[in-house]
Simulated scan of single mutants.
Amino acid sequence: MVIITGMSGAGKTQVVRAMEDLGYFCVDNLPPMLIPKFAELCAQSGGGVSKIALVVDIRGGEFFDTLVQVLEDMEKQGYMYEILFLEASDETLIRRYKESRRRHPMAPHGRISEGIFRERERLEHIRGRAMHIIDTSDLTAAQLRGNIAGMFAEDREYERMTITIVSFGFKYGIPLDADMVFDVRFLPNPFYVESLRRHSGQEEPVIDYIWKWPITKQFLEKLLGLVDFLVPNYVKEGKSQLIIAIGCTGGLHRSVFIADKIYEYLRSKGYKANVEHRDLQHNFPKS
């Protein structure tokens, strides 16, 4: 169990998103007195909920002041936890509040600086119990996610995002969640070869036909070079999922073939990749 707390505006929302990507069950703004009961429910899940991140901060009002006592009671009951405390400089917090145009919870009708001062005083005791303290003043969102992954990831899988390659037919629409879309309708079309029309891009006759054209090899070489350049930079930026969409007219031949080629290449490079052929069912409907 990780208790996430700290200064308002220091980046707790970004941390929760990073923890969710690491497989943690996250709850925001949980009243401290409910933490033991929540921990008990998770313990009874039979391992179904084994990684928990709870955000507890001064939004809880008077309830927040019970946090230290609740944690001490949990220690006596044998529950293990870590406290992650986020902070930032006064200047950084004021700037972030100005940009978001939100009121500080400790000074809803006063100056932001007054609210920050009061909050620091109120958080002093819980900060002293923190196992991890991160100053986010000079961190980008990607750097903060990287720090969280370095602290709480169980292995080094956090260094790789999940890449999904989706083949599709333009006649059925572009995938809405695609990060990159490549149109391969310029490649020779097996649809116009009568013996290949009812076969997919995963079958040998169609594969041989598409692969025999020099333009296919030239395109794939350039596309894989682009993938080689982009993917490490997306990983470095902290992206957790990348969707690469490959489209042809019907989503049966060329897009399927190219998507499979990209998938095989990424897997050979050690990336976490999977492939989906979205529109094959339109061409081969279930009986």
Rank of each mutant, 00 (worst) to 15 (best):
L144M: 01
I94T: 01
Y158M: 04
L84D: 01
E124L: 14
N147E: 13
G173T: 08
E121S: 12
G169D: 03
V181S: 03
S167I: 12
L144P: 03
R96D: 01
E99V: 11
G150I: 06
S137D: 02
F182N: 05
I174Y: 08
D138A: 12
A141E: 09
L93P: 07
S113L: 07
G115V: 01
E87H: 04
P108E: 12
D138W: 06
L144K: 00
R96T: 01
T136H: 02
Y97R: 09
Q143I: 02
D183C: 11
P108T: 10
V184P: 01
L176R: 15
E114M: 00
F182A: 11
D90W: 06
N147P: 00
T140C: 02
I134A: 10
L139Y: 05
S100Y: 01
I165F: 09
Y172H: 13
A153H: 10
I133K: 15
F168Y: 14
M161C: 14
A88S: 12
F152P: 07
L176N: 09
D183H: 04
L86M: 10
S137Y: 09
R95D: 11
F85Y: 15
I165T: 14
F182T: 13
R127W: 09
F117H: 13
S113Y: 01
I148Y: 08
L123M: 06
G110K: 14
L123R: 07
A149M: 01
D177Y: 08
D90I: 09
R101H: 13
V181T: 11
E82M: 07
A142Y: 01
P108I: 07
E121C: 12
L93Y: 07
E82W: 04
M180A: 14
L84N: 00
F170N: 10
H125P: 00
G146C: 04
R120G: 06
S89D: 09
F182W: 15
I133E: 10
D183Q: 08
G110T: 11
K98Q: 12
A130Q: 14
T164K: 15
E154N: 11
F170A: 07
Y158P: 05
Y81N: 08
S167L: 11
R120K: 15
G110L: 11
R145V: 02
D177W: 06
S113N: 09
G169V: 03
L123K: 06
V181E: 03
R156N: 13
Y81V: 10
R122L: 13
